[in-house]
Amino acid sequence: MLAKRVIPCLDIKNGRTVKGVNFESLRDAGDPVELAKIYSGEGADELVFLDITATHEKRKTLVALVERIAATINIPFTVGGGISTVEDVYALLQSGADKISLNSAAVRNPELISHIAEKFGSQCLVLAIDAKQTANWKVYLNGGRLETELDLFEWAKEAEQLGAGEILFTSMNHDGTKNGFANDALRQLSETVNIPVIASGGAGAMEHFYDTFTYGKADAALAASIFHFKEIGINDLKNYLQQKAITVRL
């Protein structure tokens, strides 16, 4: 049976991890490769690296980093942040990234999704959506700073039709709260599209993962700070999930 995936997310700026991390065993806590190795060793199923570097010239740093990550770890990883052209995608995949994630650029230019899917296959294309619920779920751009008129579910469906291989949905209402994932919306999303859905935003306890994999129907769940600050160990989390009869890779 296909396992539910647990995915730590690392924010990267100028080739270094951004958020403070709490790993005494790290020689260099700012080195994403060191952190990736630890997560991989603890049983992470995949990793996501989100580049928040603003400038274009720093992209070369990212490509070099991706190559070091690919040379080191033996699990799949996704790279996202600021990707806006087919050339960006080519450079990252050639360096050894397994998938790339698109966000704002796909909203501004939906054809980018089909161009990438046709050239490299849907399997490498994760569509990241940041959305916030007021009356309805609206899609936001530029890291949540710019509201659009797009509806979360309609946009996800359109992206699937254009060739997205997975949806990574971050609820801005839940992100940072540690009160659990947006399971109602996730459940509706999973019933709307027939591609895997990755839950993001709100993880604070092990039962939140259980809830999102059951009621929320998520195929994978992503979190950052609870792993970085060792509030939850990945191996402990997966053992807990297995005891609760969730299929995980152990």
Partner: peptide, 22 residues
Amino acid sequence: KVPHIGWNKTDGNDDWYYFVHS
């Protein structure tokens, strides 16, 4: 859901392998 993305076991085997395919 298609693609089949993630870790799965092959029949009669306890090892997990990573699949990505439609």
